[in-house]
Design a protein around this nucleic acid. Structure first.
Lengths: 145, 145
DNA sequence: AGGTAAAATGCAACCGGGTTGCAGGGCAGA
DNA sequence: TCTGCCCTGCAACCCGGTTGCATTTTACCT
């Protein structure tokens, strides 16, 4: 693990998406890369207690718009997750299931669930899917207290 | 169509769900019964321009809790729809697809889409599903301008 | 290196939906 | 008729999202 190398890699990630790699953005990206679950603006704000809420907000907006992260609605709050490689400016492929665990309150992506079987009645054309489920995740199920 | 009969029927609907049939609640129920699409608190408020926002809010909360309606999140705002017969206090069966048309901005339920094919990885247990899609609905597709 | 323009940041403030507390009013039951 | 409970309406608050504007940083050009 070499911090300098990670920085270098993260700079490249941003440049590939046409985002200027500023300090704030690199820190935010680094944080997002560490996350296993979706995080809200408030979560990030709490983590970087010195950072400005609005800057973070705009950073996330930029990331989302450029295809670095995608957002989901989780009971009134917006949460963010890293995108797949295939996402780009204005183009998202977020058609996978988001699972919200009511116990640990984490939201994770379940790419392995096959949603291709979904078909709509004639006349409807879908631009975007939003799939989510809530319940108990595998980790919490394993650790009954 | 007999207004008195409808009233009587609506009173019964509420009583069956253990809700006191007050004037406000009957009006709200009547309005909800007329809707083809999900409505927000603001929508209802606009329709009953004399009504109090908070009372409406609490009426909807009561309806939801008692299994008359269910709520969905539609880009930051909560919208409400009538439940199936099978819903009761604290028990909802809303596992059908909600389709949001980006043109007419209406949200409708698509019960005909089969979601039973969905299966999760082992370890996950689902309490509630939330399926939605956005795009162009059949009615708007038919009326290209 | 210095100057300039554009982009990013930080602060203040606003907005709108959701939510709660409390006082008044109406209705049902004693 | 009296009493208590539930519904209603008003005020106010909270919190996430969002915008405007002034300041700072960065990139670029000479």
């Amino acid at each position: 693990m070499n911090a300098g190398q990670n920085d270098e890699r993260n700079v490249q990630i941003l440049l590939n998406k046409e985002i200027q790699p500023t300090a704030m953005r690199l820190l935010t990206l680094e944080y997002l890369l560490e996350q296993q679950a979706a995080v809200s603006l408030a979560d990030i704000e709490l983590h970087f207690h010195k950072a400005d809420r609005i800057t973070l907000y705009r950073t996330l907006k930029t990331f989302e718009q450029k295809g670095v992260i995608h957002s989901i609605q989780e009971q009134q709050v917006t949460k963010y997750l890293l995108c797949d490689e295939s996402c780009a400016t204005g183009i998202h492929h977020d058609d996978h299931l988001h699972f919200f665990c009511t116990k640990c309150r984490n939201t994770t992506c379940l790419h392995q669930v096959d949603l291709s079987v979904m078909s709509l009645p004639p006349g409807f054309s879908v631009v975007q899917w939003h799939f989510s489920a809530s319940g108990i995740c595998d980790r919490c199920a394993g650790t009954m207290q």
